[in-house]
Design a protein around this nucleic acid. Structure first.
Length: 270
DNA sequence: CTTACCGCCTGTCGGC
DNA sequence: TGCCGACAGGCGGTAA
């Protein structure tokens, strides 16, 4: 389940192998991802110099002068740089063959990921309606507080809503709400400015910690299977139902909020 | 506008 | 041991 830190680590890992090079050929073995890959992709994205690899939310943008590849890893997707002669595995759906002798390989067993081409990525329907970046200057306690006014939905759903802020997935929502002492089921509109300021701080700190951990364990994407080495990252409450709260010793509870598993300490989080 | 829910997929896990 | 059903889960689409 690539969360934002994993996507950012992937971006940093693949960028040096892509920038300044060109895609010679795109080999699509399975076009049926979340949306079918358009024939436009191979037509547009080959034989142009890549000038940057950037990220918006959990989308990666492989940028060329006339447009970008927009790529999402879904739940189980990953990208790796592999040798030209390495045989593809069962779920290796797409190869971007580069003119430097290596291959950017997209693997995604569950196929919740997606790959698009857009000549104006900022205006693309998947990107245009997005909220601010969680690590950017626009994401503040004041902003969240304003957005939450008159909203009755659970705060956990609220911070996972991509129109409010992008890139906060289930794991980080659970962890940050625990650290902030806010119960995930609490109505978004019934939380004080001060508590939202604390929440923003915890979201950012948790994401940054994971990005740093990813960066420190990521040696070389060329030899990696695409999995950064920080999967051993310890969660405080996520998937810890039945264990004891590290703060007060109460039993961590699990409930479903908005179709997703939520973990919290009923003692610490109100 | 907001909220709730659906469904795309397949690896994993629990039960028998 | 092996089979099978339930389930997880990001997130856009859509219905209410």
């Amino acid at each position: 389940m690539p969360e934002l830190p994993e996507v950012e680590t992937t971006r940093r890992g693949i960028a040096p192998h892509l920038v300044g090079h060109q895609i010679e050929q795109i080999c699509i073995r399975q076009a049926q991802l979340r949306w079918p890959i358009s024939a436009d992709l191979a037509k547009q994205a080959t034989h142009h110099v890549i000038d940057a690899v950037s990220r918006r939310g959990k989308y990666l943008l492989i940028r060329m002068p006339h447009g970008s590849i927009i790529l999402h890893l879904g739940m189980t997707g990953n990208l790796a740089i592999v040798a030209l002669d390495k045989a593809p595995g069962k779920h290796d759906h797409v190869d971007f063959v580069l003119n430097n002798g290596s291959v950017l390989r997209f693997r995604d067993p569950r196929r919740f990921g997606s790959i698009h081409w857009s000549d104006a990525p900022e205006a693309h329907r998947l990107i245009a309606s997005m909220g601010p970046e969680p690590l950017g200057p626009d994401f503040t306690g004041q902003y969240l507080y304003e957005q939450a006014k008159n909203r009755a939905c659970a705060v956990k759903n609220f911070i996972m809503d991509g129109k409010v802020v992008v890139g906060v997935g289930n794991i980080y929502a659970n962890e940050a709400l625990f650290k902030a002492g806010i119960r995930p089921s609490r109505a978004a509109g019934r939380i004080s400015l001060a508590r939202y300021c604390a929440l923003v701080g915890h979201i950012q700190a948790t994401l940054e910690e994971a990005i740093d951990a990813g960066g420190s364990t990521l040696k070389d994407f060329y030899h990696s299977d695409g999995k950064p080495g920080y999967f051993q990252f310890q969660h405080l409450v996520y998937q810890k139902a039945g264990t004891l709260c590290p703060v007060c010793g109460a039993v961590i509870a699990q409930v479903v909020i908005g179709q997703r598993s939520s973990f919290f300490c009923a003692q610490c989080q109100r």
